[in-house]
Amino acid sequence: MLKIQNLQAGIEGRTILKGINLEIKAGEVHAIMGPNGSGKSTLASVIAGKTDYEVTEGRIEFMGKDLLDMLPEKRAGEGLFLGFQYPVEIPGLSTTNFIKTAVNELRKYRGEEPLDAVAFLRLMKEKMALMDIQQPLLSRSLNEGFSGGEKKRNEIFQMAMLQPKLAILDETDSGLDIDAIRIVANGVNKLRSKDNAVLLITHYQRLLDFIIPDFVHVLYNGRIVKSGTKELALELELKGYDFIKNDLNIAETV
């Protein structure tokens, strides 16, 4: 589904990603962990197409297409979703109206008829029940005055509504208490299927107690330095990121 080869990218002349290789197949859940500043969020932004970043090397293939050639909205059209670490606020634009626009823009991209009000409402009611989200939140202006937990739940709700092939969740757990993490994780688990994939980006292991990943990768200094299964996450939690650094230093000096 997603194939990243030797991806190098940076911002304002500073290289942040120094050769990323990663392959994600349908049905898989991958987690990328790493200390602050290792390039986790940059990777998410580059995949989604944020123009602030410049790709200098490598390629990203998504569903067999060259992703780097596409505008961000086309990438979304192909089925890519990014759950933002800091969702933006748009005053005066109701969350429902925003999601309806997004749903219909994606349908348009795929050559489908827009949903009418009744069909949209039916879809929304269904996903609201699934995500345990209430109407008042969706009537409010997009993310305006939302608590941290509400913002993240709204991201997951949008994911449910847009039904992407690949969802990248950028630090969806940061700033959430354990109950909120559980709710968000529940949402993600309900949406898992053999046809879609999830890439979790997280600083802490605790989210992975609730969403069990198939693969865990450690990103450090712009490179994936270690890959493994969920046990790697537990090892990291136990020993901290220093053990990775030490491993690397040894490897480099040998």
């Binding site: 909205e73 059209g77 933006v88 748009i90 005066g92 925003f98 626009t101």
Partner: peptide, 27 residues
């Protein structure tokens, strides 16, 4: 630009994004 990128990521092109933001502002 962050607001526009957020909309782009949901499949909404930049012109439609500006229209949404402006109409929200003027609601």
């Amino acid at each position: 630009e962050d607001q526009i990128f957020y909309c782009n990521q949901r499949g909404i092109d930049s012109e439609t994004a500006v229209a949404l933001i402006i109409n929200g502002f003027a609601r």
